[in-house]
Structure formats: C-alpha cells, structure tokens
Amino acid sequence: MRAFSDWQTNKPHDERVHDNEQVTTSNKHQVHDNVTKRYAKGREAMKPAVFQYVRPNNLQEALSALRDNADAKLLAGGQSLIPLMNFRLSRPTTLVDISQLKELATISVSEGTVHIGGLVRHQQLHEDEQIREVLPVLSKAAGEVGHWAIRNRGTLGGSLSHADPAAELPAAMVALHATLLLESADSAREVPAEEFFLGFLTTDLQDGEMITSVKIPVPAPNAKYGFAEFARRPGDFALAGAYVELSGEGGTDAVTWFGVSGGPERRELSIAKETSDRAEQFKELAEEFDPVEDPAYRKHLAVVVAEQAYQQARKGQA
C-alpha cells in the first residue's frame, strides 16, 4: 500500500461561514439542500482541501487502512465524493482509494443468486449480459444513472454508501431484495438492503466497514419488474422514481420509490388491476412521503412514475 500525505496536517473543520456562526443546519431538510443541491453558502471553492492518500493493493490492506485511520473515507468512483471535496463540503483527512481493486469489480450468477462486487461500475452493470438476462430492470436503471462519463467511473458500492435519496441504485437494491455484504478488517456481516438505508444520506455502514458486494436473488419465473423515473433533464437526479414488482397470481406486489423522501420507500400491496383503483392505491401511499421541494408535485409524480413502472412490469420487463 502507498500512502501519500500532504505537507501539512489538515485540521478538519466544517465551517463554511466566515465568522464562527454556523449556517443553520438544524433540520434534515436544510442539510438536504446544502448537500444534494451542491451549494455552499458564501464560501466558494473548487479545489479539495488537503488529505492523506492511501492506495491499498488488496481488500485486506484497504480494510486495515480504514481501521487504522479514524477519519478515513473510501474513494471508489469518486463521482459523488469528489464534487463534494472540490466544493470543500467534504474534507476527509484520509482517502483510501479502492478504485483499482479489480477483485471487487466482478459480476457472477450462481445457484439462483446474482453476486455484484462493490466496485462494479454503473456502465458495466448496465451492459453486463448476465444482468440483462436475469435482472433487466437493474440493467435499465443502471443506464439511467447520471451521464455516460459518470457511469463509466461511478460504482455500485459508492452509490449505495452515499445513499442519495434521489439515486436509482439504492432503491433498486431494496426493490430487488438485495443483501449487502459489509466487511471490516475484523468482521463481516450481511444486511438486507431494506435495513441498510436509514434515511437521508444515512446508512447502517459502520466505521471501518466497506460494501464489498451485494447479492440479489434471481427473481422467481413469474415475478415481473418495472422501472420508471422522472427528471427535469435526462441524467439529472430524479424528482421521483419507482420500481414495481408484480409477484404473479396470489403473491404480494410491491412498489419501491425513490426521490420522494430521505431514502428508498418500499411498500407491499396487492396492486389493483383497474387503473383508477391503482391510482387511488398509489396516491394513498404517496401521501405518506415528505418531499422537501414542491411536495404536492413530487407526490403527484410518485403516483405517475409508479403507474409507468407498473405498465413496464405488465409488459414483462423482467
């Protein structure tokens, strides 16, 4: 492992105001604005603050480095982290760069389970033949993440640990019953996706842990999935998105939304066949959400994208 540190020890501080009075970040919504909308009040920056750079040669070295550096952050694709660092909204003292660990960038299907490494890039996920065959909805969703250049570098593990509420992949994990493998230097544990996302930019990932892979059960033959989202421009963060799971005769269906609250929102129900009944069902569920901006519109969109995803599922997308 190589570790490069800058010429001065960096004293971390998150002050973004010029006096000692903090910008109000008293509630989650304010934080949401500051982080997802990428603006810093009054303080302009475009170059990252100083950090120590560690490049492990393998997973074990990476996990050791995470354990040994209290404020260390993992650098995978960096497509969410580096913008925040450029704006100096994030100032990790140590970056552990795992982007080159090829062992974590594999996709395999065996015994009814899809295994996806934490460093699989979005474009790789989007183009992978096995994924297209067994989880076409995931392939489609991965193709909607950002733009091509972003997808070429952004990773599954990075997206899941960043847990942006408007991101496609955290919700995909919840919708597809994924289990995340979290490893640290001393332990490993499995967490169902539904339990992993705790709210706005918050996950169950503990200090020292890394998402090394996820496993997703190959859907039952009669299960069908659909996916839809809406953004102002293609490639922008979604204003609302949804996955619909139709389990077939007698089973329980589900809708998993994103972009409408602090994280993925999965609801099980038996989706009505009648259009107007379905609209009522979706509307009732969407009422529970608490979007920050344009709440009425976003709840309305939640219903629209759920219906679109339902139609996709009906067409037998999965």
Binding site: D33, K37, R38, Y39, E44, R233, G235, D236, F237
Partner: peptide, 18 residues
C-alpha cells in the same frame, strides 16, 4: 437573499436531448 442556484446542477442549461 442567498443565491441557491450556484451550480450547473441547479442552473439547468439545455443539453443535446432538449
């Protein structure tokens, strides 16, 4: 009085698809 659209993710420019 804070300008809240200080990035290209907030100030939306038309892209090739628009």
């Amino acid at each position: 009085g804070q300008l809240v659209t200080t990035s290209m993710q907030d100030y939306l420019l038309p892209a090739s698809v628009e």
